[in-house]
């Protein structure tokens, strides 16, 4: 695993927006910028490491109190601004793009005292509210997307895009603690993950669960070429267009072709509840 968690987030934020500074008043760990995607002006958000963060448990790319509330505020700014949009060329709600490379939520005493669950809920709420209000919300996973960090930043998107390489990690928990808590060795966990798809740490297996819109093959994810950037731009634009054709909820994650196989039990329980609801 790359020790430089979070460096990809910054690289891709800069590649896609041409900017690399936080907005005034925001902590250095949250990068937000407005930039073009196709003909449109989208809002991009990314959480990056800040070795000098005033919260010691949120210095390595974790999503903590400040990061979560900053995301929430910057997303709500876009949603609340919409009614004042000029009725000009584009009257569609602006896209919101989450660039995700987060190692986890922040694990600290101060965070729990400060109610990090509410901070995380407020960010997820803002993303979901934007989505329900018709803003296409697209998540681009360029590195890690772990646990509460991902729930806070990115998992509420209409469409999820991820790079197909070994340094991309989408999971409920890192391998070592997950093995310990389920009383296994890492080797046992890895062996099980070959047959139990939701346990796998390979993004190509994650793609089989039916949650992901697309896997993107990037030649150099650490230092992208112009072609890499153009490919990602086009994939985001395509995901925005695809989003606008469908509903604003997350039903696509149950209805995708891959979900029909991997999430059979989810679909079965949904169907059964619907049958019995009005009996």
């Amino acid at each position: 695993m790359s020790k430089c968690t979070g460096t990809r987030g910054r690289v891709w934020f800069k590649a896609l927006t041409g900017q690399e500074k936080p907005m005034p008043g925001d902590p250095p760990s949250v990068l937000v910028a407005d930039a073009a995607i196709g003909e449109e002006n989208a809002r991009f958000l990314c959480v990056v490491p800040d070795p000098d963060s005033r919260f010691p448990c949120a210095r390595h790319g974790e999503v903590g109190l400040e990061q979560a509330y900053t995301l929430g505020a910057r997303i709500r700014e876009v949603v609340n601004d919409e009614p004042r949009r000029t009725s000009g060329s584009s009257s569609l709600p602006r896209p919101i793009i989450a660039i995700v490379d987060v190692k986890s939520q922040a694990y600290g005493r101060r965070e729990e005292i400060g109610g990090i669950h509410l901070a995380a809920a407020a960010a997820a709420d803002a993303y979901a509210t934007a989505r329900f209000s018709g803003h296409p919300v697209i998540t681009l996973i360029v590195g890690q997307a772990i646990s509460g960090g991902f729930l806070t930043h990115g998992y509420q998107a209409n469409r999820l895009l991820a790079f197909a390489d070994d340094n991309v990690l989408i999971h409920a928990m890192h391998k070592e603690p997950a093995a310990r808590i389920t009383r296994r060795t890492v080797a046992q966990l890895e062996s099980l993950a070959k047959t139990v798809t939701p346990l796998s740490y390979d993004v190509r297996d994650y793609a089989k669960l039916g949650l992901l819109h697309k896997l993107l093959s990037i030649s150099n994810p650490e230092n992208p070429s112009a072609d890499d950037v153009s490919l990602v731009h086009n994939a985001i634009a395509e995901a925005i267009a695809d989003t606008r054709k469908g509903p604003t909820d997350l039903r696509n994650r149950f209805e995708s072709d891959a979900a029909k196989t991997a999430r059979k039990a989810s679909r079965l329980i949904r169907a059964r509840l619907e049958e019995e609801w009005n009996q």
């Binding site: 997820a124 709420d125 409920a172 939701p198 346990l199 796998s200 994650r253 989810s266």
Partner: peptide, 15 residues
């Protein structure tokens, strides 16, 4: 944790 990624996905959907 035995259902890891499908559990995490379910939580996002619940929210």
């Amino acid at each position: 944790l035995q259902e890891a990624n499908l559990g995490l996905a379910a939580v996002a959907e619940i929210i």
